[in-house]
């Protein structure tokens, strides 16, 4: 998703102003109908019954507990992804080793696997009739239908984000600074903290933002492993579905609008990061 920050150069050869205006107009109409209308519909529906109803929906204990759980899951998943993302990116960008191609494919895999399957695999593994489930449950370790299952499923679907973003930036950078630092006597960790990390800080930041957005918004995988226990295993996206099923449409859209705001913040963070890293 990282993209060159270079502005389109002024081109000598281009379309006539008429064609240009037509194309711009067509693209804007398309985006307005296809992208902005659904976005607006979230807020229109959320405020359909006024700001009071909106506030009540967001302050509802069920929603607050769901927000708490979602924050907890993100707080566990994002740091883990940070560690994995940095390690994997460093490994793939700087070394050649056997199994590298397979590793790259494995990192991408969660992108193209249906979230439903992502949930299913954990049920098949840790469920009571699963491969490891009976052994763990005997020892009182509950994975699926409890918070650990939600964390694992979320970790699965978010695994590529940090790794992919950081890897993309590392691949475009050389290793000269690192090698210089080593020659000057710096240790491995010293080199990592003072050279490597600053070099990839923007892609790392954006990877974290993306990973966080996905972690807080994942629905399919989490819905399979949640167990839907009120106040315990309900995340914000599941709460949206529950409110919807309880005929509380305004509340459902109100909670959905929180997630939408998060999405918009993510996009803003991306602009910020791109602007900073282009300097």
């Amino acid at each position: 998703m990282a993209r060159s920050g270079r502005r389109a150069s002024e081109r000598v050869v281009t379309e006539s102003p008429g064609v240009r205006r037509l194309l711009i107009g067509a693209a804007m109409v398309f985006l307005t109908l296809f992208l902005f209308a659904p976005l607006a519909a979230v807020f229109v529906n959320a405020f359909r019954a006024g700001a009071g109803a909106y506030a009540a929906a967001v302050a509802d204990p069920g929603t607050r507990e769901a927000i708490g759980l979602t924050l907890l899951v993100a707080a566990i998943v994002v740091p883990l992804n940070l560690v994995f993302g940095l390690a994997a990116a460093w490994l793939i960008a700087k070394f050649s080793f056997r199994g590298k191609g397979a590793m790259v494919t494995l990192i991408d895999l969660p992108f193209s696997i249906s979230p439903v399957i992502a949930g299913l695999v954990f049920v098949l593994l840790f469920g009571r009739q699963g491969t490891l489930g009976p052994w763990l449950l005997e020892r009182g370790v509950q994975i699926v239908f409890a918070v650990p299952g939600i964390v694992l499923a979320t970790l699965f679907v978010t695994l590529p984000f940090v790794a992919r973003e950081v890897l993309a930036q590392m691949q475009t950078q050389g290793s000269e600074e690192e090698e210089a630092a080593l020659t000057l006597g710096a240790g491995g960790w010293r080199m990592f903290w003072s050279i490597t990390l600053p070099k990839v800080r923007w892609s790392l930041l954006y990877g974290i933002v993306l990973c966080n957005a996905r972690a807080m918004g994942e629905f399919g995988a989490v819905s399979v492993v949640s167990g839907l226990i009120r106040g315990e295993t309900i995340t914000v996206p599941l709460q949206v579905e529950i409110l919807y099923n309880e005929y509380q449409f305004v509340a459902a859209f109100a909670v959905a609008s929180l997630l939408t705001l998060l999405a918009l913040l993510t996009l803003a963070a991306r602009r910020f990061v791109e602007a900073r890293s282009a300097r």
């Binding site: 840790f126 469920g127 009739q129 699926v144 239908f145 167990g227």
Partner: peptide, 8 residues
């Protein structure tokens, strides 16, 4: 199904 799979 969830109960069968370990939702206690």
């Amino acid at each position: 199904r969830a109960v069968i799979d370990g939702l206690e």
